[in-house]
């Protein structure tokens, strides 16, 4: 039996200790907002926060997480209220297909926590997630809008 602290709750489940955190979240815990895109930490679709740090969960083995706090996209609006960043995302209608957006939102959440007023260069450095639809322009605008809100 494994235990993880996910979205403020202690979760018990069974999985091989080498299973990537991504697949534990999706398959053992049913948190499918975190997406599989590449499995090699290139695309960022699987980005979650581990102790507040944006992390590509596809390359994090379950047995390396320990008692660190994992936060997924589902936690952001768990109270029923969108975060400031999510509100900006909705207002600027950022997503197209939307598949990469959970990872984008999580990466941007970590960025704003670290740098409440990020520059374009900060955004370029932090937002290395891949979007094939090409929402980059709106992603940048939404991060700036959330920083100003």
């Amino acid at each position: 039996m494994a235990v993880l602290n996910v979205n403020g709750k202690s979760m018990n489940f069974t999985a091989d200790p080498r299973t990537p955190l991504l697949w534990v979240l999706r398959e053992q815990l049913g948190l499918t907002g975190t997406k599989y895109g590449c499995g090699i930490a290139q695309c960022g679709s699987c980005t979650v926060l581990i102790d507040g740090v944006a992390t590509r969960s596809c390359q994090v083995p379950l047995n390396s997480v320990g008692n660190r706090k994992v936060m997924t996209i589902e936690a952001l609006a768990a109270s029923g209220t969108l975060t400031k960043l999510q509100e900006a995302w909705v207002k600027l209608d950022v997503p197209q297909c939307g598949y990469c957006q959970s990872g984008m939102v999580m990466a941007a959440t970590a960025l704003l926590a670290a740098k409440p007023q990020p520059t374009d260069a900060d955004i370029d450095a932090a937002m290395t997630n891949i979007c094939r639809c090409g929402t980059y322009q709106q992603v940048r605008e939404a991060i700036h809008a959330a920083a100003k809100a």
Partner: peptide, 17 residues
């Protein structure tokens, strides 16, 4: 605005996978 935005921003959107 699009009709399919909010769930894509909260992780609720269910794709085939």
């Amino acid at each position: 605005n699009r009709l399919d935005t909010v769930d894509k921003v909260t992780g609720k959107q269910i794709y085939g996978i």
